[in-house]
Write a protein that binds this DNA or RNA. Sequence first.
DNA 1: CGGTATCCCTTCCGATACTG
DNA 2: CAGTATCGGAAGGGATACCG
Lengths: 115, 115
Amino acid sequence: MRKGLHDKPANCMVEVAMEILGGRWKLAIVYKLLQRTHRFGELHREMRGITPRMLTRQLRELEEDGIIARMVHREVPPRVEYSLTDTGRSLETIVGLLDTWGRSYLDDHPAVQAG
Amino acid sequence: MRKGLHDKPANCMVEVAMEILGGRWKLAIVYKLLQRTHRFGELHREMRGITPRMLTRQLRELEEDGIIARMVHREVPPRVEYSLTDTGRSLETIVGLLDTWGRSYLDDHPAVQAG
DNA sequence: CGGTATCCCTTCCGATACTG
DNA sequence: CAGTATCGGAAGGGATACCG
């Protein structure tokens, strides 16, 4: 478990959830892994914009927090697969609703500038 | 609308949602305002740990993003009330699920250290 | 009452290069 | 293939004091 998850006084459990799931990439990774198990390189390719360094860090934190599992296959070339734990899969409804909310938000609040 | 909401290529709408709702305080504020309209001082007192400066910044961003409404009553002493917009209220289910998820996460992953 | 101003530290996050 | 190392800017966030 990461340090710092329990040492801040939380006003509500929403803060606890956001402490674990906040940041730009965490829930996007969960979104990907809800579809299927992914290798490191697959995630890197499919999530455009993330650097290997950030992907590694986010995956490690999600692993420490018990959201994903990391499976290392000792082969040549190496193969590492990431999947969701039960705790991670329990986010399916929330991730789905957030995806829907974000889509309708963009529909209702289109970007002003065209360039 | 805040700058930067639409200029990052998003892999999924979950990223859009987190761009608006991410951070330590945003959804906690929405959680409070789901209960009822709050004045600035009420939010400040009830959300222990937040500084006036941060509370102001988070409220302004939520207002820019169309999540909350700011109502200034021209009285002495001044009174400012914050409430949710329709868009903000549309987060009710998600916030409720996140609250439940956070609670059960803490139940399943208790802090190791007692102090 | 409802904020600002100033200062400063930490964390997030990206670019680039390198490795077993 | 699956990462690490190093660097550095941007943003998040807190302490304290002050203002209309």
